[in-house]
């Protein structure tokens, strides 16, 4: 197995673990943890592909930094949304806001 495939396999495993958490968790915070795992897999995949192939390596590293910035922004917004949901529904379970009510 060549190095690039090894790194990409680890990235795919991170994606799968994050997706599992996104589906299996009951609370919004648990789902957020899954999303962070998936974003980490994406960053690892981007950097590995840029560092081990003839692609522009600067583009890959800056892309990974962009993913990190987006993850930080997303975590901030999700924190605010989780706060509102827990204030309105009592806890941060994901099936609380499932039904639409007027």
């Amino acid at each position: 197995m060549n190095p690039l495939v090894c790194y990409q396999t680890v990235a795919v495993l991170l994606l799968g673990l994050g997706f599992y958490a996104l589906v299996a968790r009951r609370t919004l915070v648990g789902m957020l943890i899954g999303v962070e795992l998936m974003l980490n897999g994406a960053g690892l995949s981007i950097v590995a592909a840029a560092q081990l192939t003839p692609t522009d390596a600067i583009l890959g590293q800056l892309g990974a930094l962009l993913v990190m910035g987006l993850a930080a922004a997303e975590a901030t917004l999700v924190l605010a949304i989780v706060l509102i949901v827990s204030k309105r529904f009592g806890d941060a379970a994901a099936d609380g806001p499932r039904e639409l009510r007027g």
């Binding site: 968790r25 009951r26 609370t27 915070v29 648990g30 957020l32 943890i33 962070e36 930080a72 975590a75 901030t76 999700v78 924190l79 989780v82 706060l83 827990s86 009592g90 806890d91 941060a92 379970a93």
Partner: peptide, 17 residues
């Protein structure tokens, strides 16, 4: 940030999981 989210929303000791 996520620790803050756990701390501010947690209803029970396990956070609902």
């Amino acid at each position: 940030l996520i620790f803050f989210a756990i701390m501010l929303t947690r209803a029970s000791a396990d956070g609902g999981e």
